[in-house]
Design a protein around this nucleic acid. Structure first.
Lengths: 228, 228
DNA sequence: GTTAAAATATGATATATGTCAGCTTTTTTG
DNA sequence: CAAAAAAGCTGACATATATCATATTTTAAC
């Protein structure tokens, strides 16, 4: 199994603040997992008891509403950590994470992370900063959900996908989402998402080949997101 | 000026984890402020450079949407801390806080808090836990905003107000909100909020005397919040 | 206390979005 | 490869909510 000390992935998250010694300890207790597309990394109500470091792949993090509909809260990708929150608040997860493509993740058990949080202020501070950043993003999402129309949110989502995930030579975004996923991100009915996406397509703003997405006119999408 | 070491308010927040020595230092550099109803505690874009500890009163924390409408993200009351986030991420505030009634707050400058965060792991851990909790709540709000109707959200809001703020002998909630505030909490037009509130009133679920709110039927409101 | 301003209320109407139903295409499974 | 299942698409219709206009009541200002 690969060693954390030598793993480049940690550069993308708070684990980079651990000392060599600490990393060796993490490495000794961590386990590797491969999650296939469509399979859960963890589910609502489950005790995670550790932190996942995403080595490769993407997962959708969602939550069931009382109405029985699924809301995707965020997309987590290579380099991200997930699970710190439940660990810190010592509660079962309030979220479900499902792989959107084949994933490779490392799992570090709770005790090791807690120990590092207590002993290494740099690490703790980094986790704290990360949370502050996430909280800020959450505020933005709340405002967006509360104030923007479905069309605005969908345009916004497309722009963000392009920014967050790589685009290949043909301009195709390196992530495949179903229409239902889109609906669950913006918080609408699948049919509405389908209709609006094909609207965007008709207007020449995006192109779809199956689930491949290519953004043709970011500027116009931005205008729509802003309400024009 | 009163001393932090002797202040009971700190029992309600992370400051309770500071040592006597640390509290004495905090006390020495803190300032007291009185904010009148309607006045801002701080505004979007402002560098706060410290943390506020709310000694008395309530404020609404909001953010402007691109559509030009105000969204209230949360209500902060006696005992709460506010400002840690901007301090930790070292950025100007993304939020505005406006007093809903006369407030008394203490302001502790950044340097002192940062010093405590670096030196006192208990304090840091407490702040971390607090953030994890807020993040969880944010997830819930996002799901609610994305998936529930305005009516559901309004019912939910009324229930939460009753839980969060004291109720006097006559059953009246100890917080006055305008119809516009209600609209800005649930993310709707003021007219819609007015209509729905008077609907609830007609159905005997709530009672209004001006801005005084009395909840008459929590159970029924809960049903509405859940979509019945 | 009178006037002006703000908040609340209500009606009419337009529009966005949800829901249901049926159909086609794509993907999965054996 | 065939059959079944899932995903995508489209139309018709119902409904929630926004918007605009106007009236009334409450609060603030002089």
């Amino acid at each position: 199994m690969s060693k954390c000390e030598q793993c480049i992935i940690k550069q993308f998250n708070s684990l980079k603040h651990l000392s060599r010694e600490e990393l060796v300890r993490v490495s000794a207790c961590k386990t590797s997992k491969f999650i296939k597309k469509g399979e859960p990394l963890f589910e609502e109500g489950e005790r995670i008891n550790g932190v996942f470091c995403i080595k490769d792949g993407v997962c959708k993090v969602s939550k069931m509403s009382e109405n029985g509909r699924n809301q995707i809260i965020s997309l987590i990708k290579k380099g991200d950590l997930i699970g710190e929150r439940s660990l810190i608040s010592d509660e079962p997860s309030n979220l479900t994470a499902v792989a959107l493509n084949d994933m490779e993740v490392c799992f570090v058990p709770k005790d090791e992370i807690m120990r590092d949080l207590e002993k290494n202020p740099n690490f703790t501070m980094s986790v704290l900063k990360d949370m502050a950043k996430t909280l800020k993003k959450s505020d933005n999402v709340i405002v967006e959900m509360a104030q923007k129309t479905v069309k605005q949110r969908l345009a916004e989502t497309l722009i963000r996908l392009k920014e967050k995930f790589d685009v290949n030579d043909d301009g195709i975004i390196n992530l495949q989402l179903s229409r239902e996923d889109f609906a669950n991100i913006v918080g609408t009915a699948t049919e509405s998402a389908i209709r609006l996406l094909s609207d965007f397509k008709k207007k020449g703003l995006v192109e779809f080949k199956g689930k491949e997405i290519k953004i043709l006119n970011t500027q116009e999408l931005e205008k729509i997101a802003q309400g024009f």
